[in-house]
């Protein structure tokens, strides 16, 4: 697994994402967070793994972990079609502007998220959003659970195949479901 930016020119200067070498590490970090938030973009219906779309894996993970999900683009309908109701739906820029604002009190108005997890947006767009948060919300912890290394996040999985991605998401789900 490689820790080069997935799209080759998406380079960073001095602050680069720490690689998540094992899904268990991501799970531990999410469990440690008090107010995590999972923001899910439109590519989760474009990527197929083992005959299933990525959104199915995300739903399993969200159900197991109970992390509130924000669906961007038109994904809210895609989630609901599959029997899962996300906590909220927003435009990708609108929600990202809010998570980058320390005075924003979260979806429930009770507190700012302390870990924001991104998955499934067009790579270049997600990279730009993460860059924005890196620069303008330096205290916010960001993570991506894509199979593409995102250099501007705080933590990112390295580049991996779709099969490896499916395996990682399944391990994460199992750990939240009480697996070892």
């Amino acid at each position: 697994m490689s820790c080069e930016p997935w799209q080759c020119a998406e380079i960073a200067s001095t602050k680069k994402a720490n690689p998540i070498q094992k899904p268990e590490i991501a799970v531990a970090m999410i469990k440690k967070a008090q107010r995590p938030l999972l923001i899910v973009g439109s590519n989760v219906t474009e990527r197929w793994m083992e005959g299933k779309q990525a959104i199915e894996y995300i739903i399993d993970l969200a159900n197991a972990s109970k992390i509130p999900v924000v669906a961007t683009a038109h994904m809210v309908g895609e989630f609901i079609k599959r029997g899962y109701t996300p906590a909220a739906f927003w435009n990708a820029m609108e929600i990202s502007q809010r998570v980058g604002d320390p005075t924003w009190m979260g979806l429930d108005g009770k507190g700012h998220p302390d870990l924001v997890i991104y998955v499934g947006m067009p790579y270049y767009m997600e990279a730009l959003i993460l860059a924005g948060l890196k620069h303008f919300a330096p205290d916010l912890k960001t993570m991506t659970i894509d199979n593409m290394y995102h250099v501007h996040a705080s933590w990112s999985f390295p580049n991996a195949s779709l099969e490896e991605w499916a395996a990682n998401l399944k391990v994460m789900t199992s750990k939240f479901s009480g697996g070892n």
Binding site: G41, S42, T72, H74, N91, M93, M125
Partner: peptide, 11 residues
Amino acid sequence: NVAETKEECIV
């Protein structure tokens, strides 16, 4: 603003 997909753009 950006719209991520055609569907979102229309709305």
